[in-house]
Amino acid sequence: MTVELRLDRTTTMAQLLHIRSHQLTADVTEAEGGNDAGPSPHDLYDAALGACKALTVMWYARKKGIPVDDIHTLVERDDSGERQGVYRLATRLKIHGTLSDAQLQELHAVAQKCPVHKLMSTVTTEITTQVERLS
């Protein structure tokens, strides 16, 4: 899969992200020189974790017949140590449904195993970058 980004020419720096048939805007705040036309790359990174946890829990609950009616997910960022190599994300899933304590614990375990959580914490990501002239 390829994600394509192009400059949004109506803004200073914002990027239009094209993912399959979806379009999103990413930008930085005005204090960082942007127009705050969309979430920042850090916001999208954090949101990917929250979305993955919620979707994984919902998928699992439906597969196992666990009565989950709603999930409200919060992701709190502490980037104060990022330059020293530590980026902290605290997630909280508020799950609504007629759940036993055992089912809630089961869903907690599932949330800990979402693919993005694993990607962020246990996988080595290798990145290559090429810079070319645009003609």
Rank of each mutant, 00 (worst) to 15 (best):
H117D: 11
Q23S: 07
R88Q: 12
M13V: 15
V110H: 04
V75H: 10
L74Q: 04
D36I: 04
G38I: 06
K118H: 15
D79M: 03
L134P: 11
D8C: 00
T2D: 13
P115A: 03
I127Y: 00
V75D: 10
D46E: 14
M13T: 14
T29P: 09
V86E: 14
A61Q: 07
T73K: 02
D46T: 15
A61C: 02
D8V: 00
P41M: 07
S121F: 08
A51T: 15
V110L: 03
P115R: 00
L93T: 00
L89A: 01
T122S: 11
I95Y: 01
D79G: 05
E30S: 06
D36P: 02
H72C: 07
E32T: 06
T12G: 12
Y45F: 15
S21P: 08
L119D: 14
T11D: 03
L107V: 03
T10G: 08
V86D: 04
A109F: 03
R83N: 15
Q15K: 13
P67M: 00
G38Y: 06
V110E: 09
S21L: 10
A102N: 02
T73P: 03
I66R: 07
R88C: 05
S121G: 14
G50Q: 07
A37R: 00
H117C: 08
V57N: 00
V3Y: 09
H108M: 13
G81K: 13
I19G: 10
D69G: 11
T2K: 15
T125G: 03
V3G: 07
L17S: 08
Q105E: 15
L107K: 04
G34I: 10
E30F: 00
L55A: 02
Q103N: 04
T98D: 11
G50S: 01
W59C: 14
L49F: 04
D69H: 08
Q112L: 13
G65M: 00
D27V: 05
M13W: 12
V110N: 03
T98P: 07
E132V: 12
